[in-house]
Design a protein around this nucleic acid. Structure first.
Length: 628
DNA sequence: TCCGGCCTAAACACCC
DNA sequence: GGGGTGTTTAGGCCGG
């Protein structure tokens, strides 16, 4: 995949969904603010610490970092390094080697500083605990996504100078040794990592909150180096793998030493991470990290239980939207207002109050149709993008349209849906569920700026689709011919996809690293559950209602849902009736247990339970899935 | 590699 | 004849 820097704006538009584009813009704006704030803050700290350093130098106490708080100490050390580069600190020697973990101070300083490490780190741990509490509070307030990794990653970019997650500690040591300069750290802070925090970064935070967070830092070192989460103090060797070794580098917190092979890594491990005070302290820090995460997990699990219990007891009770978490879960939501849901379709992030929120992003934000869409790359293509229908199997069209209707109305962006899906949606959206061709045309042009041009192309495509797909039935009317939708045929032509793909299932369930995919699945699940809620007849197996919700035979949704629960046994060759029936019945009893079910699934089920009445009305209007 | 879904393009027929 | 509508075919791309 191309790096963001290499993507042209047009390509960006093609690749990213509208919400993503908006989120990106917001990110950039917020990032600029963050940069300014960071630079100011850094400059301020630098000046302040410079004065302190001068006094230390005068008193020969430069190594006594305990006199200052860890944060100041870190900045001080950065200043040391900076001044070293400016040759203003003669006491600091040149680097003797490239060992990141080695201090490069003078021998006396090295020894003195070494003796302070443990006490220093104890302070850091205390700081860390306070910070983690702070984060928990922020999470409670919905200001910070709950997913540790995403949260930390996103925030990490804005808190390079802040103390003191474990990896920051390592970073500090690096900085003491001068390996990566503080300027680099600042650059790192200024860098926009689209791959890790597209939805969770600044755009997801109220400015004040993000600033606040930036200046207070975060606690969890995993954020800083998510892949360095392995906790191991042992130097045991593993024949083929080692939890501290991956992708050719050492995963020891704060150490990214490149090791070509396991042997080299083992040597590195024994040399650089031997049993000493430093390693011990690092283990201790890592233990703190793990403990905090466990505590957080327990708390969030408890909350989830409570929420589940609450929702199951009163499923019809509307759930208030959690605005802050909406913001946190989806940058694109920032642009939404109540009018953005004209159809009252599922508001994906409304489940943001659940602990799983961080695992998901608004389906329309980074939907699978966004991530998985690809340019059809027609040389003669008229549209910016061609999105395969298979993508939309995971994408709720009504949801997306509802949430981004203004966007599509004004932006010349091709909607990420097939013609068939759009036509069907247009027809089902009409009062009589039938439209003339011209009305379909009008719907397209009314809803999408994109279809206000290239009329010959897409109109031809519309006609082609109407004729080609059996699901579109032409009915002679008094006023002429109108087109209706045959849902059975519509579902028939869309057999389950991705059936039994363990990888996808795994990704969906884990929700880690494939948040968008997970989100789209959840959206599909949510909508399938909506359909279920509005289709009591589908509840043929009350005992497994919650899971049956996932089996509603709904084209895109059903195919997606099928994936969720299928072990590959579901045949896509079933007739619509067979299929429809079968998916209602088919289930995996062993997965019904809520506690053991992936939270992402629960999210899809739970968050959609309460719907405003108007939304339910609409859902009821759409007899089958809706909303693909 | 094969297959199916999707898209675009185009040709053709029919009707007003 | 022109435009709109409807049908059909072909070719290409892509993911499973």
């Amino acid at each position: 995949m191309m790096s963001p820097q290499m993507i042209t704006p047009q390509q960006m538009q093609q690749i990213l969904s509208p919400p993503q584009l908006q989120a990106l813009l917001q990110q950039q704006q917020a990032l600029m603010l963050q940069q300014v704030q960071l630079q100011e803050y850094y400059k301020k700290q630098q000046e302040q610490l410079h004065l302190q350093l001068l006094s230390w130098e005068a008193g020969g106490k430069r190594g006594e970092l305990r006199r200052v708080d860890p944060h100041s100490a870190q900045v001080a050390l950065q200043c040391i390094e900076m001044q070293q580069q400016k040759r203003s600190l003669p006491k600091v020697t040149e680097h003797t080697d490239d060992q990141e973990s080695e201090f490069s101070l003078s021998a006396a300083d090295h020894q003195q500083l070494g003796t302070k490490q443990l006490a220093f780190q104890q302070q850091l741990i205390q700081m860390q605990q306070l910070q983690q509490q702070h984060i928990l509070n922020l999470q409670r307030q919905g200001l910070v996504p709950l997913q540790p990794t995403a949260t930390m990653q996103s925030l990490q970019h804005f808190v390079p100078l802040a103390p003191m997650c474990p990896s920051d500690l390592q970073q500090l040591w690096k900085e003491v040794s001068g390996v990566p300069s503080s300027e680099e750290a600042l650059k790192q802070a200024e860098g926009l990592d689209l791959s890790t925090n597209s939805s969770n970064s600044t755009s997801a935070f109220p400015k004040a909150a993000s600033t606040h967070i930036a200046l207070h830092s975060l606690a969890n070192g995993q954020s800083h180096t998510p892949k360095r989460d392995s906790f191991s103090c042992s130097h045991e060797e593993h024949a083929s793998s080692h939890p501290l070794y991956g992708h050719g580098e050492c995963k020891w917190p704060g150490c990214e030493a490149l090791c070509e092979d396991m042997g080299q890594f083992i040597k590195h491990l024994n040399n650089e991470h031997a049993l000493d005070d430093r390693s011990t302290a690092q283990c201790r820090v890592q233990m703190q990290v793990v403990q905090q995460l466990e505590i957080q997990l327990a708390k969030e699990s408890e909350r989830l239980q409570a929420m589940m219990a609450h929702l199951h007891m009163r499923p019809s009770e509307p759930k208030p939207f959690n605005q802050p978490l909406n913001l946190a879960s989806s940058g694109s939501l920032l642009k939404r207002d109540s009018e953005a849901y004209p159809e009252g379709l599922p508001h994906p992030p409304t489940s943001a109050a659940t602990p799983i929120t961080p695992l998901r992003q608004g389906p329309s934000v980074i939907s699978s149709s966004s991530l998985h869409t690809h340019s059809h790359s027609h040389t003669h293509g008229v549209g910016p993008i061609r999105r395969r229908n298979s993508d939309k199997y995971c994408t709720p069209i009504a949801s997306e349209l509802a949430q981004n209707c203004e966007f599509y109305k004004n932006a010349d962006v091709r909607p990420p849906f097939t013609y068939a899906s759009l036509i069907r949606h247009a027809i089902l959206e009409s009062p009589d569920r039938q439209l003339t061709l011209n009305e379909i045309y009008n719907w397209f042009t009314r809803k999408f700026a994109y279809f206000r041009r290239n009329t010959a192309t897409w109109k031809n495509a519309v006609r082609h689709n109407l004729s080609l797909h059996k699901c579109f039935v032409r009915v002679e009317n008094v006023k002429g011919a109108v087109w209706t939708v045959d849902e059975v045929e519509y579902q028939k032509r869309r057999p389950p996809k991705m059936t039994g793909s363990p990888t996808l299932v795994k990704n969906m369930i884990s929700g880690l690293g494939f948040g968008s995919l997970n989100a789209s699945y959840q959206a599909a699940l949510a909508e399938s559950s909506l359909s279920l809620l509005n289709s009591p007849s589908l509840l043929t197996s009350p005992s497994a209602a919650s899971l049956n919700m996932l089996h509603v035979g709904h084209d895109d949704v059903s195919s997606t849902v099928e994936q969720v629960n299928s072990n590959g046994s579901c045949s896509p060759t079933l007739s619509p009736q067979q299929y429809s029936h079968q998916v209602h019945v088919k289930e995996e009893p062993t997965e019904v247990e809520e506690d053991s079910r992936p939270v992402s699934l629960l999210a899809g089920v739970t968050h959609s339970l309460p719907l405003p009445s108007d939304e339910r009305d609409l859902e009821e209007d759409l007899p089958t899935e809706e909303l693909e």
